[in-house]
Design a protein around this nucleic acid. Structure first.
Length: 574
RNA sequence: CGGGGUGUGGCGCAGCCCGGUAGCGCGCUUGCUUUGGGAGCAAGAUGUCGAGAGUUCGAAUCCCUCCACCCCGACCA
């Protein structure tokens, strides 16, 4: 490829709405351009990257025995009513009407469509198992699109769906996909980790997320360096402490005392004011639940002062909830938030495991400006009847598998595999006849990869002050040839053209920058774009039969014989 | 949807408080010089100041309405 025939449009400054580094660099390098909020055009340069990611995903899916197909982007809304997911998905579904006023949606995912296809096409156990996948543009009307291509509304996704006669066979395929995903992300050249995950809105049982590790990631991950335990913090279990945490000043079973703590509403302030460690304080969280049998119930949660509430775990423990309003809190406890406590409270109380093990702790006195110290269960208030894991794990917590302690890091979710089981197959009557001629509901698995998101994630992971650092596997070009004085020097022109043709013939994806730009701006462009290998062709080196090689992250250039450059690059690219 | 902010040439911004007919840097065009790290000089082009309505002799600037975008919270590949 020659730059004069390509379209390169780099910017010195990124638009001010680009917030994170990958978004800024993608705009500056001319990979994408924004059309509307969360909707981007993939420019020729960006499309090359996207296609490379896509092809690796495709090759590995095919290798694992999945069949590619392409489903419609536009789907009749009836299918979503049939699966029961229409109302639940809500405003994220982009709906539209055709000229006959028939309702359609732009597909945010394709469980319904594939299940519909399979229930029509597959009738017998002899046709199973089957795994179909597609690489499709999807649309989710995100509440808040941001981070460019990382959380766009329109995005490219690989979604695969497998169908089985038994749960055991689904588990077999799930394992195959786990390994396939591991191969894919390895080939893409990304640092990643697979973690146990919450199944979320899609539903089902077993589930793993694949995360590209990056500090800017939106997800918190907990992992154990001494074992292979890894989980999303939404899910990571906080195990109960083995020993009781010692409370105030190390003194055990001091009498409970009411102390004035004017203006100290947060645990941090109270701990500092009383000169006690934060871990001896208890925070009180007031919620409201609304169930058929118990409408509008006030629920109090107890967490250790240094811990944070995990809303997903809490929902699992007590069901749907919302935070209580101030007037509801005052009505239930007679105090404003900041001074709440469980002593004397008789409503529903859910105690975090860590709090249940505490002694001589500090909590609010249910009176503005006052806290209680030296509080103990069994003595000052009843032994808790509801103990649950409702907090986020923190660094240093024991690993739930009993090996070592947890570390935290951040990740960008780029893949997710689920054992869906029979949820959709049942709703859509997707059945087969077994060996005995009996109707059975199929077991389903579903496997997603955010193809366009991977491009952003890769840049988030690979960049420096000069621009993008792409792994060779997904760089728009593997090698760029930068000739000095291309227009005027015939020697340079001939050498550059010859090298370009030689590399292309050897199957190396090569760009020859024949734009006759100044050296500085060509260097800056290709470093911004992130091409991993650069060869400079100049009269200076050519005099001695040499070319200059420089890797994107190298500090110095290396002189290589003209004749040996192809082999040199092949070895570098691997 | 709730809370905060911003809309001025392609991009980044100033001007707005204190109304007087729009400016800077980058980019773009032309010419000459330059040519191994985003060149220099000279000459140019590009704006219904987000939209609509209002106050005023006069509105980018003040008032109202709407729209778009961004940031902070609930979603997800």
């Amino acid at each position: 490829m020659r730059a004069s025939q390509f379209f390169i449009n780099t910017l010195k400054e990124a638009p001010s709405d680009a917030e994170i580094i990958s978004h800024q660099l993608m705009i500056r390098a001319g990979l994408i351009r924004r059309l509307a909020g969360g909707i981007y055009t993939w420019m020729p340069l960006g499309l090359r990257v996207l296609r490379k990611v896509e092809n690796i995903v495709r090759e590995e899916m095919n290798r694992a025995g999945a069949m590619e197909m392409l489903m419609p982007a536009v789907q009749p809304f009836e299918l979503w009513e049939e699966s029961g997911r229409g109302p639940k998905y809500g405003p994220e579904l982009l709906r539209l009407k055709d000229r006959h006023q028939r309702e359609f949606v732009i597909g945010p995912t394709h469980e319904e469509v594939i299940t519909d296809v399979v229930r029509r096409e597959v009738k017998s156990y002899r046709q199973l198992p089957r795994h179909f996948y597609q690489i499709q543009t999807k649309f989710r009307d995100e509440i808040r699109p941001r981070f460019g291509v990382m959380r766009g509304r329109e995005f490219l996704m690989k979604d695969g769906y497998s169908f089985h006669t038994s749960f055991a066979d689904l588990q077999r395929e799930y394992q195959v996909m786990y390994e396939t995903y591991t191969r894919i992300f390895t080939r893409l050249g990304l640092k990643f980790r697979a973690v146990a995950a919450d199944t979320g809105a899609i539903g089902g049982t077993g589930s793993h997320e694949f995360h590209v590790l990056a500090d800017s990631g939106e997800d918190g991950l907990a992992y154990c360096p001494d074992s292979d335990y890894a989980a999303n913090v939404e899910l990571a279990e906080a195990v109960a402490p083995v020993v009781s945490s010692v409370g105030a000043g190390g003194t055990l079973s001091a009498p409970m005392q009411k102390v004035a703590t004017p203006g100290k509403a947060r645990c941090e302030d109270v701990a500092e004011f009383l000169n006690l460690p934060l871990i001896s304080t208890v925070k009180c969280i007031a919620l409201m639940t609304d169930k058929k049998d118990v409408p509008n119930e006030f629920v109090m949660l107890l967490l250790r002062g240094d811990h944070a509430l995990n809303e997903i775990k809490t929902q699992k423990a007590i069901g749907e909830f919302r935070f209580a309003r101030e007037d509801e809190i005052v009505a239930a406890l007679g105090s404003k938030p900041g001074y709440l406590g469980p002593v004397g409270y008789s409503g529903r109380l859910v105690v975090d495991r860590a709090v249940a093990a505490m002694r001589d702790f500090v909590c609010g006195a249910n009176e503005e400006g006052f806290h209680l110290t030296g509080v103990n269960f069994a003595r000052d208030l009843p032994t808790p009847s509801e103990i649950a894991d409702i907090r986020n794990v923190v660094e240093g917590d024991p690993s739930p598998d009993g090996n070592g302690t947890l570390q935290l890091c951040r990740g960008i979710e780029v893949g997710h595999i689920f054992q869906l089981r029979t949820k959709y197959a049942e709703a859509l009557s997707c059945t087969f006849l077994d060996e005995n001629g009996k109707d059975q509901v199929m077991e389903m698995g579903c496997y997603g990869i955010g193809v366009s998101r991977i491009v952003g994630a890769a840049i988030e992971q690979g960049n420096d002050e000069r621009g993008i650092i792409f792994p060779t596997a997904i760089a728009p070009f593997s090698v760029v040839i930068v000739p000095m004085n291309f227009a005027k020097s015939e020697t340079v022109r001939n050498a550059a053209n010859a090298l370009h043709d030689e590399l292309q013939a050897a199957g190396i994806d090569t760009m020859l920058d024949d734009r006759d730009e100044r050296a500085g701006s060509m260097f800056a462009d290709w470093e911004l774009i992130g091409v991993p290998h650069r060869v400079v062709v100049g009269e200076r080196g050519l005099k001695d039969g040499k070319l200059e090689y420089k890797g994107r992250t190298d500090n110095e250039a290396t002189l290589v014989d003209v004749a040996g450059m192809r082999a040199f690059l092949q070895q570098k690219i691997g």
